[in-house]
C-alpha cells in the first residue's frame, strides 16, 4: 500500500488549460497517472489531449467528479482564485485536494481551513510539490503523481518522505533511489504558514501504513509543526525516522523564500526543532546530503 493515493486513484486537474497545469498534466499522464478529468470554468465539453489520451474538461468540479468518479484533485489555478478552487473541490466531496498554487493570501487560507473543519476532505498544500506514490514501471512509472515533482527520481519501495520544501524532497528521494531504497509515498506539505495537512498528519499515516518501513521528515525554520510531530513520534511512532531541518544559518526576522520560513519573536528556530528531533529519537542528518544515508543506517 501507500498513503493518500494509489496507482488506481482517479485524479482531476483544476486549471488544466493553464500553461502550468497543462504541462504537469502531460507529465502525469506520461507517468501513467489516471488523470480522468480537467476543470476550467467556461471550457466544459472540450478535451485535453496528450499522447493519445483524451481527458474531458468540465465547467465544475462537481460535474467532473460525478461523471468520472475522480476522488482526488490537483489545483493549478492562480492565487486569487485558489481558495475558491479548494472549497469547490471539498464541496464536490473529493477526499483529497492537493493545491500546488504558490502565493495564496494567508487570510484566504484561514477562511478555507475554517470552512474545511469537519469536512471529509484532506488538503495537501498549498505552495507544495504535491504527492507521489511511485509505480512499478520503468523510472517508477505507473504510479500516481499529483503535482509537479519529477516522476523518474522515484522508485517503488518502503520509505515515506514528508517535507515542506519541494526541491529538498526531490533531493531526499533521489538520494534514496540512488541507494536502491524505494518510497511508499512522498508528500510535499508546502511552505506556507497556513496549510492543510501538517507533518504530524502525514507521519501518523506513515506509521499506520504497513508498506512504510521508515520515514524521512524534512522541516525548516518557522512555526512549530516539526516540534509537534516530534513529540508525537517520541510517544507513538514505531518506525525509524530520520530528519533534516533547513535554515540553521537563516537570519532571524527574514522570510527565506517560503512564506512560512521565518524565525519571528525568537520562535521557530532550527536549533529548537533539531533539539525536539533529538529528544524524540529522530536521527538528524548532519548535512542535507546525508538524509537517505542517515535513515538507511537506522534500518
Amino acid at each position: 500500500m501507500s498513503i493518500l493515493v494509489t496507482p488506481q486513484t482517479k485524479v482531476l486537474v483544476q486549471g488544466i488549460t493553464g500553461a502550468f497545469g497543462a504541462r504537469h498534466t502531460r507529465l502525469s499522464l506520461d507517468y501513467g497517472t489516471r488523470v480522468v478529468a480537467g476543470v476550467t470554468p467556461g471550457k466544459g465539453g472540450q478535451t485535453f489531449e496528450h499522447g493519445g489520451k483524451k481527458v474531458p474538461i468540465f465547467d465544475t468540479v462537481a460535474d467532473a467528479a460525478r461523471q468520472t468518479g475522480a476522488t482526488a484533485s490537483a489545483i493549478f489555478v492562480p492565487p486569487p482564485f485558489a481558495g475558491d478552487a479548494i472549497l469547490e473541490a471539498a464541496d464536490a466531496g473529493l477526499g483529497l485536494v492537493v493545491c500546488i498554487t504558490e502565493g495564496i493570501p494567508v487570510n484566504d487560507m484561514l477562511k478555507v481551513k475554517s470552512a474545511l473543519l469537519g469536512s471529509g476532505t484532506r488538503l495537501i498544500g498549498p505552495n507544495c510539490p504535491g504527492v507521489v506514490t511511485p509505480g512499478e514501471g520503468p523510472d517508477s512509472s505507473g504510479g500516481c503523481r499529483i503535482g509537479i515533482a519529477p516522476g523518474y527520481i522515484h522508485k517503488k519501495g518502503h520509505i515515506g518522505v514528508v517535507s515542506r520544501s519541494g526541491t529538498l524532497t526531490y533531493e531526499a528521494v533521489w538520494q534514496l533511489t540512488c541507494r536502491g531504497a524505494g518510497q511508499s509515498t512522498c508528500v510535499g506539505i508546502g511552505g506556507d504558514p497556513v496549510n492543510g495537512a501538517c507533518h504530524l498528519d502525514i507521519i501518523k499515516m506513515f506509521n499506520d501504513d504497513p508498506e512504510t518501513h521508515g520515514i524521512i521528515m524534512i522541516g525548516e525554520i518557522g512555526g512549530s509543526a516539526e516540534e509537534e510531530a516530534a513529540e508525537w513520534i517520541r510517544r507513538n511512532c514505531r518506525k525509524p525516522v530520520a530528519g533534516f531541518i533547513a535554515g540553521a544559518t537563516a537570519p532571524a526576522g527574514r522570510r527565506m523564500g517560503h512564506a512560512g520560513a521565518i524565525v519571528s519573536g525568537g520562535k521557530g528556530t532550527a536549533a529548537a526543532k533539531i533539539a525536539a528531533f533529538k529528544e524524540a529519537g529522530i536521527a538528524i542528518a548532519p548535512t542535507p546530503s546525508d538524509m537517505a544515508g542517515t535513515l538507511l543506517q537506522m534500518m
Binding site: G166, T167, A246, G247, T249, M256, G257, T287, P288
Partner: peptide, 23 residues
C-alpha cells in the same frame, strides 16, 4: 532553485566551515 534547497545550501556551506554570502 527552491527555497528549502537554498536554505539547506547555506547550511551545508557553514557545516563545512564556510560562510554563506546570501540566500
Amino acid at each position: 532553485n527552491g527555497a528549502g534547497l537554498a536554505m539547506a545550501t547555506m547550511d551545508i556551506i557553514q557545516h563545512f566551515g564556510g560562510k554563506p554570502a546570501n540566500f
